[in-house]
């Protein structure tokens, strides 16, 4: 049960990615929603921690259910960083992105519920836009502070940042011998 092989790299990368994602998303949310810095950091932190926990749970639940050759590929990926089934990895990217987006959006609602915040005035903002007449009609709804859109942008930004770091890591990895 106890082994000397430690998941230290996974832990360090996860710490780095969570901190990075919180920073990037807090910045994005702050800009799109026009909320305070503290609130945006709290939103981003809660959303990211919750999606990480849910991701781990899903991993532990689905891993034993995978077909044997997928399990073997998973082990090769985890222990040797060998992406033997790249179509699968790429195909997983979109569901993972959408899943985290939904979890993050939902987590903000739950957070508002727990903290007793009133829902951001999305409808009011639209009403205000209505009375601006033509100016509002010409501007698309992107100007309306929509929370879903903001979370989508934030998620895209943090995923891009993490993907960039993984890319840098794999490109600049020291080429090792075949052993």
């Amino acid at each position: 049960m106890f082994t000397d092989v430690l998941p230290l790299r996974a832990i360090l990368y996860q710490l780095l990615f969570i901190v990075l994602a919180i920073a990037v998303e807090a910045f994005t949310l702050q800009r799109y929603l026009g909320i305070g810095r503290t609130t945006s950091i709290q939103y981003a932190a809660t959303a990211n921690l919750l999606s990480t926990v849910i991701g781990w749970f899903l991993f532990f639940i689905t891993e034993p259910l995978l077909p044997p050759d997928w399990q073997q590929q998973l082990l090769e990926f985890i222990f040797f960083n060998a992406a033997t089934n790249q179509p699968l990895l790429i195909g997983l990217a979109l569901p993972v992105f959408l899943g985290t987006f939904i979890v993050k959006l939902q987590s903000l609602d739950w957070l508002d519920l727990i903290l007793g915040n009133k829902k951001p005035a999305e409808a009011e903002a639209r009403d205000v836009a209505k009375f601006r007449g033509r100016a509002a009609q010409r501007q698309p709804f992107a100007n309306v502070p929509s929370r879903a859109l903001a979370v989508l942008w934030a998620n895209a930004a943090s995923f891009s940042a993490i993907a960039l770091i993984i890319l840098i890591r794999d490109v600049f990895a020291i080429p090792k011998s075949a052993f």
Partner: peptide, 26 residues
Amino acid sequence: QIGTWLSENPNLRGGDFTRSGFVWRP
């Protein structure tokens, strides 16, 4: 989980994990 994997797949144990992005062996 890593411990379980290693005991189920003993041939992993002799592998070289230096390229791994997840595990590290002292």
